[in-house]
Computed example of a mutant assay.
Amino acid sequence: MEEPFGPEYVRPAQPDCGRCGCCTAALCERGQHSPLRCYGHVDTEHRTTVEHCPCSAETTRHTTAWRMAQIRATRLAREQPLVAEVEELLRALAKGVQIEDPEELFPQLTLRGLGQLVHGMPAITSLGHTYLAARDDIRETTVVQVLDVDLKTRTARVEVAAWRPGELVTVLMDQIANDSGLNVESLPGRWLEAEANCGAENADRLALTAFRNSAPLPSGWVRVDGGATP
């Protein structure tokens, strides 16, 4: 049978991403909101090409991978901290001290993403600073209200009563659901509790963990001018 449109069909080329040069715009849009990053959304043939795409990297602020890495480092610091000798090494790197490492402890930091080699010299990573902050910060239980969720980006906007009432913070929707055991559909408008470093200077430094159902709120709690106020 003769094919009226020619022997083969070619999929129209997709626009390149204007930020990275290794992916299409559609791939980066998907990858930045996915724990799989761009790497996890291509076939084996193209993985080497997009493996280090900055648009979805955990070192790029506000990607899903970045948000997950912040929580991972915070939980590591609070729940399974490094042994004392390794943490001392990390603190020395944070101060810019040129270290000697006769016991070869530094690989324990690189394995966890807390350290890296820069021009052949050991150095702390941004995630390493997150770990140390989580070790040193005062964390407390606070009431949190979920304002809304975005199914496309898999994020939720929440208000943290003990931090800055009225200022919304973006967190991973699936983190809230997994921690609390609640369905995503039930999250908007719900009051929860979470652990937070309420002395954080900005939303990027605010690390929320351990979401759970809130105890009944005290009588008189209302929202005033967009904020949760007793």
Rank of each mutant, 00 (worst) to 15 (best):
L111N: 06
E51P: 07
H129C: 06
F5M: 07
R190E: 04
R164F: 04
L147M: 11
L151M: 13
G96Y: 05
G96M: 07
D204Q: 11
V169C: 04
G6F: 02
R47G: 04
Y9T: 09
V118K: 12
A26Y: 03
A69K: 03
E193C: 04
A177R: 06
T229Y: 05
R112K: 15
L208H: 01
E201I: 09
N183F: 14
Q70N: 10
L89T: 10
T59Y: 11
R47N: 07
R30F: 03
Y39I: 06
E88D: 12
T170S: 09
L105R: 09
G128M: 09
E45Q: 15
R47W: 09
R139D: 10
V143N: 03
A69N: 04
E159D: 15
V169E: 02
R154E: 12
Q145Y: 02
Q108R: 11
V184G: 08
G220N: 05
D148A: 15
F5S: 08
P12A: 08
T48M: 14
D204K: 08
L192N: 04
G128H: 05
W66T: 01
C38D: 03
S126V: 05
S126A: 15
E201M: 10
G226D: 10
S214I: 01
C17I: 04
K152G: 07
D137L: 02
S186T: 14
F211H: 01
R135I: 13
